[in-house]
Simulated assay, not measured.
Amino acid sequence: MKKILVLGGTNFFGKKAVQLLLDKGYEVTVATRGNNPIPFEDKVQHIVLDASDSLHAGWQAVQAQQWDAVFDNICYNAEDAHIRIEKLGQQLKHYYFTSSLATYMGDKDGYVEADFNPLTYEINPHKTVDYGEGKRQAEQVLFTQAPFQVTAFRFPIVLDNDDYTKRLHSYVDKALKHETIQFNNPDAKINFVKGSSAANAIVWAIENEQAGSFNISSHDAITRQTFIEWLEEMTGQTIKVDYTDETITGSPFNTRHHWYLNSDKIAEAGFQLDNLASWLKPLMKDLVDGMRAQ
């Protein structure tokens, strides 16, 4: 039975991944700052840890044990990555962490893993570190310096009923309130991953000891116009849409160009991808029904 440490794992798809690991009989320890209740009753061990603080006392409890695998949902930048190497280097066989579609730069009709190579990426210490740059730097440090095996999960926007950011919820809410939705480009394509599918991919990679970078998304992508059509179908009403060249705020799925992943690599390795319509339409309908019942 593998002994697995999860850094962050009490919210959204991290929580789903922990539950899957428990269902499969793994010995799971969850490390969090301790600010929120642990939702797994007495089924997991808990370490109170601020993983961004190399001097935090919780690291002593982490280093006191050997781990078959670590899944890290809270590594955001080069500093975090350096701490992981320092603290886990002698206790770990394989490290898996959440990266992002945001590692990719430029306009392309479907990013593949080779479009960002952490082995050749040079960190510019003067560059502003936003979310995407933080993930690029974290990958660069981990893949070039870690003494353990590394796997990076490059996710697009993750959606589900329990998405605490409520991004899809916001579009459903606008549609039901007959408010205008704004996008820059009706033909720009996008894809997503369902929270449960993200969790399944994490556990699949751990079980199969997959190493390297993996895009994990729906098999297909849709235009913003198709997204609106599906939302109209699920709400049963015509939606007001403003396709504009102006700068847009409050539209979290908006970009001026394509913004989606090609996930053929993980599919060819044996992981089953979902088609968007199979889960995004039902999810929209669930949200519609929930909001109308309120």
Rank of each mutant, 00 (worst) to 15 (best):
residue 2 K to P: 14
residue 9 G to N: 01
residue 9 G to E: 00
residue 10 T to C: 05
residue 25 G to K: 08
residue 27 E to G: 01
residue 27 E to R: 10
residue 29 T to D: 06
residue 29 T to C: 02
residue 30 V to T: 03
residue 32 T to S: 15
residue 37 P to C: 10
residue 41 E to V: 14
residue 41 E to H: 15
residue 45 Q to F: 04
residue 45 Q to V: 03
residue 46 H to L: 04
residue 47 I to Y: 03
residue 47 I to F: 06
residue 48 V to W: 04
residue 53 D to N: 12
residue 57 A to Y: 03
residue 60 Q to F: 08
residue 69 A to G: 03
residue 69 A to S: 15
residue 70 V to I: 09
residue 75 C to A: 11
residue 77 N to M: 03
residue 80 D to M: 01
residue 85 I to V: 13
residue 90 Q to H: 10
residue 93 K to T: 14
residue 93 K to C: 11
residue 97 F to V: 14
residue 98 T to K: 07
residue 101 L to P: 03
residue 102 A to N: 10
residue 103 T to H: 01
residue 110 G to A: 07
residue 111 Y to V: 07
residue 111 Y to C: 03
residue 113 E to H: 05
residue 124 N to S: 12
residue 132 G to I: 04
residue 135 K to S: 10
residue 137 Q to R: 12
residue 138 A to I: 13
residue 141 V to G: 11
residue 142 L to S: 06
residue 144 T to V: 11
residue 145 Q to V: 05
residue 151 T to N: 12
residue 152 A to L: 09
residue 153 F to Q: 09
residue 157 I to E: 09
residue 159 L to R: 01
residue 160 D to C: 13
residue 160 D to R: 04
residue 161 N to Y: 11
residue 173 D to L: 10
residue 173 D to V: 09
residue 175 A to V: 04
residue 185 N to C: 07
residue 188 A to F: 13
residue 193 V to Q: 12
residue 199 A to F: 00
residue 205 A to Y: 09
residue 208 N to K: 15
residue 209 E to Q: 15
residue 210 Q to L: 15
residue 212 G to P: 09
residue 214 F to A: 09
residue 215 N to M: 03
residue 216 I to A: 04
residue 221 A to I: 07
residue 225 Q to W: 01
residue 228 I to C: 02
residue 230 W to Y: 06
residue 231 L to N: 00
residue 236 G to M: 04
residue 242 D to K: 14
residue 243 Y to Q: 02
residue 244 T to N: 09
residue 244 T to G: 08
residue 246 E to H: 12
residue 246 E to N: 14
residue 247 T to E: 14
residue 248 I to T: 14
residue 256 R to M: 11
residue 260 Y to S: 01
residue 260 Y to Q: 02
residue 263 S to K: 09
residue 264 D to Y: 12
residue 264 D to W: 08
residue 268 E to N: 15
residue 272 Q to G: 10
residue 279 W to K: 14
residue 283 L to A: 08
residue 284 M to K: 09
residue 287 L to S: 09
residue 289 D to W: 02
